[in-house]
Design a binder for these strands. Structure first.
Lengths: 163, 163
DNA sequence: CAGTATCCTGTCCGATACTG
DNA sequence: CAGTATCGGACAGGATACTG
């Protein structure tokens, strides 16, 4: 995705966006989580043009989010399955889902996250696994880490605690 | 972001992407969380072209994620502050941060989420606030909600539980 | 069925110049 | 300082036709 003037490639968020920044990528991942593995499943569910689907699928494979796997030799047929890196993306989708449901579903929720056993709707929140406390400001904040360069350190030192 | 062939606008993830699908939007939000409010702060921190910054900022204001506020009458000067809708986006950023740190920081972490008081690095995970259990498959799954249309219902009925 | 090959359009984005 | 105006390039994305 070559962004020439973007000086900020240390940022893990920016690095994530490098891999899933295109619109379709995230929707393809969502569909993969719902069980799609075949080209035509993705195409049908998403209504995406086949050339775009090829491009995005190849991109996700290159980035290590999905794996292309031949399930038939003759004729050659592939399926696309999530790798561990891809499966680890799931929390981002949950967060996006929760945010969309809260703010962009005026007519009610069309898709909800539920407890698989009871069917009760879940309310996903982020907590710190170490301390068990909810990750909200001002209790938690981001700071420069051990691998930060001078530029990053300076930028995170400039502000006190997060707003 | 007009995507004509996209039939799937019921999906809250797709709706979210409508608002923050452009690359810069998320980075601008990230910077806003770090305390930026002025045009030139964003510009300097992101290295973004001024016309693009104007476009994205206007887009975020239109989508209700940020608010443009005059802080000086003469000369007219604006600042851009997060609305509640914008602040609610924070969990998505945490998820993206955690994912990027885990998978795309081979040389070590440059930015980390920490307990503001102790400075100890946090391990953000999503749990269900209701039951207190971690939101992971197969314990939790997504299903069609009350506002789902026929198409959505069918698609979520087709699969049993999530893979 | 699982794509590849073309062609085209829109717009995201960068660079630069300019303004009250 | 906080933008607007203009230009040009790259590519995301759409439509369609074709193939083993």
């Amino acid at each position: 995705m070559q962004r020439t003037s973007f000086e900020d490639m240390q940022c893990p968020i920016a690095r994530s966006l490098e891999r899933v920044g295109e619109w379709w990528s995230i929707l393809i991942l969502r569909d993969a989580f719902l069980g799609s593995t075949r080209f035509d499943q993705f195409q049908k569910n998403l209504g995406i043009a086949p050339n775009m689907l090829t491009r995005r699928l190849n991109g996700l494979v290159e980035s290590g989010l999905m794996e292309r796997r031949l399930y038939s030799e003759r004729p050659p047929r592939s399926e696309y399955v999530l790798t561990e890196r891809g499966r680890d993306f799931r929390p981002v989708l949950w967060a996006l889902l929760a945010w969309g449901n809260k703010h962009f579903s005026p007519e009610g929720k069309s898709v909800v996250l539920v407890d698989a056993e009871t069917g009760v709707e879940a309310d996903p929140v982020i907590i710190d696994r170490i301390s068990g406390r909810p990750v909200v400001p001002p209790d938690f904040t981001v700071v420069a880490g051990p691998a930060a360069n001078e530029n990053t350190k300076r930028r995170y030192a400039e502000r006190g605690s997060e707003k």
